[in-house]
Computed example of a mutant assay.
Amino acid sequence: MDAFLISTGIVALAEIGDKTQLLAFILAAKFRKPVPIIIGILVATLANHGLAGAVGTWLTSLMSPETLRWVLGLSFIAMAVWTLIPDKIDDDEGGLVRMGVFGTTLVAFFLAEMGDKTQVATVALAAQYQAFIAVVAGTTLGMMIANVPAVLLGDRIAQRMPVRLVHAIAAAIFAVLGVATLMGAGAQFGI
């Protein structure tokens, strides 16, 4: 249960102001069809975070527990720093619009998540907790918690959200996870 709740909370907080949340705002403003956008975000996130969770689980089989502990601890600390750096979105829509609302959202979100902090967090969390389903379900729920309101409420919510405060909280959580991991908090899991 810890893996699910921590994964949900971290990704929901880290996603605030992230480029994929900015993409959700843009898609909502452009298409004004929330249901296919939300379904596209869900499917893209499940696919992307499923792959990331599989990589995280696989990494645990490649490294010794001591090496994995250092890699994960330092990764969480790096995520803390990365969370404090504001995201921007590229205006390169190209031919995506020809794929319809769902297809555009699916492809755009999947690609935007490649190498994004929430994808990297999913890899690290899956390796940390060795609970693939709980982590992927949690990170996916976190993405939906952050992005569904962006699709439904658009600019009304963006103007009122204290993005810097939310990023600071997410960064603090990542930092605590990193320090705890480096200090051996995951020892009961073989990390």
Rank of each mutant, 00 (worst) to 15 (best):
M1R: 06
A3L: 03
F4L: 15
F4E: 07
F4M: 11
I6F: 04
I6P: 01
T8G: 04
G9K: 07
G9L: 14
I10D: 02
V11T: 05
A12V: 08
A12H: 07
A12R: 00
L13Y: 00
L13M: 13
A14R: 00
E15A: 15
E15W: 00
I16M: 13
G17Y: 03
D18N: 15
L22K: 04
L22A: 08
F25S: 00
F25D: 04
I26A: 12
A28T: 02
A29P: 00
F31P: 00
R32W: 08
K33L: 12
P34E: 03
V35N: 09
P36A: 08
I38Q: 03
I39Q: 05
V43K: 04
A44Y: 11
A44M: 09
T45H: 08
T45V: 09
A47L: 15
V55S: 08
T57Y: 14
W58L: 13
L59N: 01
S61L: 10
L62I: 12
S64N: 11
T67R: 12
L68K: 05
R69H: 06
W70H: 14
V71Q: 03
V71S: 13
S75A: 11
S75R: 00
M79A: 13
A80L: 05
W82Y: 14
L84N: 12
I85H: 10
K88D: 10
K88C: 01
D91Q: 10
D91F: 14
E93P: 11
G94Q: 12
G94L: 14
G94S: 15
L96Y: 09
L96E: 09
F102K: 00
F102A: 11
F102G: 07
T104I: 02
V107T: 14
A108M: 15
F110R: 04
M114T: 14
G115T: 14
K117W: 03
Q119V: 06
T122R: 06
T122G: 10
A124G: 06
L125D: 00
A127N: 08
A127Y: 06
F132H: 05
F132D: 04
A134W: 05
A137Y: 07
G138K: 02
G142L: 04
M143V: 10
M144N: 06
A150R: 03
L153I: 02
D155F: 06
R156F: 04
A158P: 01
Q159S: 15
V163I: 13
V163D: 08
A168I: 08
I169E: 04
A170V: 13
I173N: 00
F174A: 02
F174Y: 08
A175T: 06
A175P: 06
G178W: 00
A180V: 10
T181P: 09
A185N: 02
G186E: 09
G186C: 01
Q188D: 14
I191P: 07
